[in-house]
């Protein structure tokens, strides 16, 4: 395999390219919305915030929305799957969320290919921007080896002041790049320069020493006092899960129109931290306490699903830490169990 060629583009050209792509794609980027910064649809590149600030929700919502209709039906029994996907460009997605996309891509394709999620992914172009420093005090991407994107992007941009170094990861990314961005050949030293800046920004911020062994360590620490300590404060409010870029549990519900003649089946985000999550129709609740639910959630991140995906399923974005009023943090739990 030949080494990928190094390309350079100016930030100006990227923004211009996005404006041109707007006729074919809906463009999503980090943008200001009242008091907050969120990933949202934009009409012009003027609305883009290039400097990253943590958002409440990750870009997950564009591929796996909070609510979506999966079936339409009539009471006579005509049933049609509803799979809605549009051409999307997600611009400026950061490594934590890119790793989140990679994990969701695997989760939604594993064993059975989820048509709704995968259709949206097929029609999307994800343009990442690498981080050169940790975004705030709650983020701990570097602890879980997630401050670099392991996948989830079509095009990756590395910041070089008024320019970006470009790395292309997919054929659809290549096509998009050729069509919309003006590039010039770059030198290996350009990429090195960008990466050196990143190294400087993350200096002294090391991953968990035994990160690779987390599944094993968590498996052995099922009775660790941390579960009770942290679980007793948990409100079971589900906030941590709503904001998590790698949580993908859902609920399914039917809703008939008021005239009871036709209806829809919907799925919506659900959360294993909510008290009724594991309750069966007969009333038995297989995870009745907040302690058990917290344990399960963290085991998904650092134990079972980590073993399956080959990377920590907590990407260290810090969203749940910011959202938790009871100050429960996967980082703190991992530190208590595995050491810093």
């Amino acid at each position: 395999m030949t080494k990928p060629e190094i390309l350079i583009t100016t930030k100006k050209s990227i923004l211009k390219g996005l404006d041109q792509a707007h006729s074919t794609y809906r463009i999503i980027a980090l943008t200001r919305n009242q008091e907050r910064v969120i990933y949202d649809y934009i009409n012009s590149s003027d609305e883009i915030e290039l400097e990253y600030q943590p958002t409440v929700l990750s870009v997950k919502k564009f591929f796996f929305p909070q609510d979506e209709i999966i079936l339409d039906y009539t009471v006579e029994g005509k049933v049609t799957p509803r799979i809605e996907a549009e051409n999307l460009v997600l611009f400026g997605v950061r490594p934590c969320d890119l790793n989140g996309i990679k994990i969701l891509d695997e989760a939604f394709a594993e064993s059975h290919g989820d048509p709704n999620y995968l259709s949206r992914r097929e029609k999307s172009i994800v343009i990442g921007i690498d981080c050169q420093k940790v975004c705030d005090k709650d983020a701990f991407c570097y602890k879980v080896d997630s401050n670099e994107a392991k996948g989830g992007f079509d095009i990756m941009l590395y910041d070089l002041e008024d320019r970006y170094v470009i790395q292309v990861a997919s054929a659809k990314g290549q096509k998009f790049l050729e069509r919309y961005f003006e590039t010039t050949p770059g030198l290996p030293s350009d990429l090195e320069k960008a990466l050196a800046k990143k190294k400087e920004g993350f200096k002294g911020l090391e991953p968990f020493k035994n990160l690779e062994k987390f599944p094993e360590i968590f498996e052995k620490n099922k009775d660790h006092p941390v579960w009770e300590e942290e679980g007793s404060r948990c409100l079971s409010c589900g906030s941590c899960i709503m904001v998590c870029p790698t949580c993908y549990c859902f609920d399914v519900a039917d809703e008939l129109a008021l005239n009871l003649k036709k209806g829809q089946r919907m799925r919506r985000w659900d959360a294993c931290m909510l008290s009724a999550f594991a309750e069966v129709a007969g009333g038995e609740n297989f995870r009745p306490t907040a302690k058990e639910r917290l344990h399960h959630r963290i085991d998904r991140k650092f134990n079972f699903l980590m073993a399956k995906h080959g990377q920590a399923v907590c990407v260290g974005c810090g969203r749940c830490v910011r959202a938790c009023l009871a100050d429960i943090s996967p980082k703190v739990i991992a530190e208590k169990i595995t050491g810093k």
Binding site: E35, V56, L235, G238
Partner: peptide
Amino acid sequence: PDIPTYPVCVECKRNENVCVY
């Protein structure tokens, strides 16, 4: 009747609100 048993935080987060706290 499908009345939620979960708290308001779930909906607040889904709406991507900044926590009032």
